[in-house]
Amino acid sequence: MTRSRKTTQPLVKICGLNTLTVVDAAVDAGADMIGFMFYARSRRAVTPDLAQALGEEVTGVTRVAIVVDATDAEIDAITATGVIDMIQVHGKEDPARVAELKARTGLPVMKALRVATKEDIREAEAFFGAADHLLFDAKAPKDMKGALPGGNGLTFDWTLLDGLKIDMPWMLSGGLTADNVAEAIRLTGAPGVDTSSGVEDKPGVKSPERIRAFLAAVKQTHLETAT
């Protein structure tokens, strides 16, 4: 059954989806974006074939491929599925690589930046005019065992985003859950939020109930701030 929905604000991306059950839960609950993880080290990783099977089930939602320093061949295999609307780069990709990917795929590119200090925020300037979207995620400590480029369940100091002036779409990520997303939105004014581990029962296993709770919390916050 093909799913579709109307867009709501602020934008919400549910990342690391790997079963039809949780794809349906995210879309039905009102997600604007769903993310498929193409990074073999992640417990949320999917193959192009699985992503195609899941992505064909949805319409009206932006389907995002999350990659980490992917090769051209890997990018080609992912986009050949025909179910990807956006590429999210979460590795060491520089502005030149972002531009290459946009030209190669014809798709918008979101650049994820890992944040621990104000200097990390300032690195966003290098991607103005190169990326179409930015995502601010938490930077894992160097001594954190098993840390991934993202999806580690860590938050960062949201006050680092004070005074942020970016004339392009951006999202907040990093340890967001149904319990803290309202505070995160109020403190940062983020026009979009992203979660992965925050809607899981255990690493790699999404919970439809947690997904619905997260979307409900975002919607409630939006209603409260809009009045």
Rank of each mutant, 00 (worst) to 15 (best):
M1F: 02
M1V: 15
T2Y: 08
S4E: 10
S4A: 02
S4T: 05
R5I: 11
K6G: 14
T8F: 15
P10W: 05
L11Y: 04
T19Y: 11
D24Y: 11
D28Y: 05
D28R: 11
G30Q: 15
A31K: 05
D32L: 01
I34D: 12
F38I: 15
R41G: 07
R43K: 11
R43V: 13
R44V: 11
A45N: 12
A45G: 09
T47W: 10
Q52Y: 10
L54A: 01
G55H: 07
G55A: 07
E57D: 12
T59N: 15
T62F: 15
V68K: 11
T71P: 06
E74S: 03
I75F: 05
A77H: 11
I78E: 05
T79W: 07
V83R: 00
D85L: 08
M86R: 14
V89D: 08
K92I: 07
E93V: 04
D94V: 09
P95E: 08
P95S: 01
R97G: 00
R97T: 15
L101G: 02
K102G: 02
T105Q: 04
G106P: 12
L107R: 06
P108F: 09
V109E: 06
V109K: 01
K111P: 05
L113S: 12
R114G: 11
T117R: 04
E119D: 08
D120V: 09
I121F: 04
I121K: 00
A126M: 03
A131E: 05
L135P: 01
A140P: 03
A140F: 06
P141M: 06
M144E: 01
K145I: 04
L148M: 04
G151P: 08
G153R: 03
G153N: 05
D157C: 04
W158P: 01
T159M: 03
T159V: 10
L160W: 01
L164K: 07
L164A: 02
L164Y: 03
M168Y: 15
P169Q: 00
M171S: 15
L172Q: 05
L172Y: 08
L172M: 06
L176A: 13
A178G: 10
V181K: 11
A182H: 08
E183G: 03
E183C: 10
R186Q: 03
R186Y: 05
A190S: 12
P191C: 09
G192H: 02
G192C: 09
G192K: 06
T195D: 04
G198H: 05
G198A: 06
V199T: 07
D201Q: 02
K202D: 08
P203R: 03
P203S: 02
G204N: 06
G204K: 00
V205N: 07
F214T: 14
A217V: 06
V218W: 13
K219C: 12
Q220T: 14
L223K: 13
E224F: 10
A226I: 13
